[in-house]
Design a protein around this nucleic acid. Structure first.
Lengths: 334, 334
DNA sequence: AGAGTAATCCAAAACGTTTTGAATGTCAAG
DNA sequence: CTTGACATTCAAAACGTTTTGGATTACTCT
């Protein structure tokens, strides 16, 4: 028998209207009345019914996030940090966080559709892709969303991201400054928007240093540690030999490090390795990984904040936020 | 202007009642009527309003999970897998998953309270502790819950867990069979219920092999890689020297491996290292980590299933499930 | 004394769905 | 022809909250 406004009304002798107005902070309730009602509500442990509020207000006060979990062995530190940021910020803004788990594929759109019909007021979209069907769907339905990931030429939407191009330029420049000229790159999947920017940065920096871009030194991974390990197997087999391997994210870089060591090389001495993200594992890797820091937790908070502002009709100071990653030099590059 | 039952009613000429009954599968609607209503609903893209359904049914069709994210650098592969299991199963059972992020501490109970008031029908509790205030709170409020974690003597509730005691016995026996007699242990925090079972298993197996239990060879970590690394620093400083280091979870074991290598030892040759969990990182570590496998993804699915069954009044075949972990022997023990 | 204003309180509608307890029409049996 | 049963459809209540548009009373000013 949950406590409702009716319960408090019966207990205090005021109407449901007065109780609602007292609890809601309206100024047309006598102070003595308000105090009595507040004390009674507190004593009875009253909690407003979320369903009733949402029905009346036509608002869910909930945001949605679908994590692209690719399978039972899903493990990506990126999402741990992101979820921590989003979760903390949504709680701070008094919004609920509805989480789904669905990898890209034929069922992906269904997962997004299931979050509709009054369940969420907006969505955070991660790892935006070229001609992303999720984006088209959300734009078509008018569902508010903010992306952690850039848009491409065909789609335009609010986002937070880091400038992968600038970041990769810094990383390549760092390696060139250390004397490297044959630098391999394990790129994220090409359909991901940020992949192209990171490859562009890699290519531009090589060019700026008079080093020809060689497509043979680039292999695509799928952001997992295994694909990084496999990518390094390929890259280490190239002749003339490479002296550095970069990866489009830390997880692949850590995988690449495993292969480098497995092949008998010393990471940072024989082969330099660099990543992107600066997930916590990067710092405690052996050796610690040189990487480009994107503040994943803060980005989580920021995309959440932006989304809730859009939902609440609060104008954004910036609709598209591109952050500059910071080069974190650790022992994996010497 | 969302499509409602009223819209369909106006379009088809039937009442809201008939539309609701047709869509709800009642058998007192003429077949031709039902077909017309279903087709119209489909054509209009009708989605039932979740708030209205929940208000009327007095049910949220949502389960809650609060992830103990300890800070902005939160990264625990255990929760990635767990979330994937819970998320997939809740979608399969057509329940929403509400996620909060809150570390243990003074605000923890508030996070649980915020999930009440009609927001969720039940909760999954992870990493149960001695005299867990969360458990007391949920039992007091009558909120259904299932734990991923055992109960202690003072509390009794439905759970799924792995038998840490049996697991650690297998791991210690494996090391003893390899000739190890001085085995250090980096234990999880003592207040966690599973920590005691794992220490008990470690102590029992030593005793069964005639090796005295030495409290000086046990240090507590906090389940993070850093605490594993620091624990190994302590353990490697013990005289006479240890030949093996065990950790209460893989993440600490991986941290310990870093320290072992940093000190110039060869993991698996000079110092054996073993963990618990078998998170994906364990497999791809360098060297791959010997560990005890608990099927985290499957446990996620199972705790979710049990919780939804409790919510729906479906009797559980087993109220407390204790699984036997499987010893996965990899190169980190030689 | 009367009129106007302000303070305080409340009834009822509304949100969109589900369910109950009907109403209505048709058909068959007596 | 009448009655009862069955099939099909529907009005209204209910869920719990918020908000609108009042009603009532008291006080002040003319």
């Amino acid at each position: 028998m949950p406590v409702t406004l009716k319960t408090i009304a019966q207990k205090t002798g005021f109407s449901i209207t007065t109780v609602s107005r007292a609890l809601g902070g309206y100024d047309d309730v006598a102070e003595s009345t308000r105090q009595l009602i507040l004390e009674t509500a507190q004593a009875l442990g009253y909690q407003p019914n979320a369903a009733a509020q949402r029905l009346k207000r036509l608002r869910a006060n909930t945001i949605g996030l679908i994590i692209p979990t690719f399978g039972p062995r899903f493990s990506d530190p990126f999402f741990s940090e992101l979820l921590a940021g989003i979760g903390n910020q949504s709680a701070e803004r008094q919004f609920d966080l509805l989480v789904g788990t669905q990898a890209p594929g034929p069922n992906e759109i269904d997962a997004y559709r299931r979050m509709e019909s009054g369940r969420v007021d907006g969505l955070i979209v991660v790892r935006t892709r070229q001609n992303d069907v999720r984006i088209y769907h959300l734009q078509e339905t008018g569902m508010p969303f903010v992306a952690f990931g850039r848009c491409d030429e065909a789609q335009d939407f609010p986002y937070v991201d880091v400038d992968g191009e600038v970041g990769m330029q810094k990383m390549v420049q760092h390696l060139v400054d250390l004397g490297h000229r044959r630098i391999g790159y394990i790129a994220p999947p090409p359909e991901l928007n940020f992949s192209q920017h990171r490859i562009a940065g890699y290519a531009t920096a090589l060019k700026m240093n008079g080093i020809p871009y060689d497509a043979a030194l680039v292999i695509y991974g799928d952001l997992t540690q295994q694909s990084g390990a496999a990518g390094a197997v390929y890259l280490l087999g190239i002749d003339p030999p490479l002296t550095a391997i970069l990866a489009g994210n830390d997880t692949m870089a850590l995988g690449a490090m495993s292969t480098v060591r497995e092949r008998g090389f010393v990471v940072g001495k024989d082969i330099a390795v660099g990543g992107f993200d600066d997930v916590p594992d990067a710092e405690y890797a052996h050796p610690p990984l040189t990487t480009l820091r994107q503040p994943i937790y803060d980005i989580g908070r920021q995309t959440c904040d932006m989304l809730i502002n859009i939902i609440q009709g609060i104008p954004l100071s910036e609709i598209q936020v591109l952050l500059e990653p910071e080069l974190i030099i650790r022992k994996s590059t010497g």
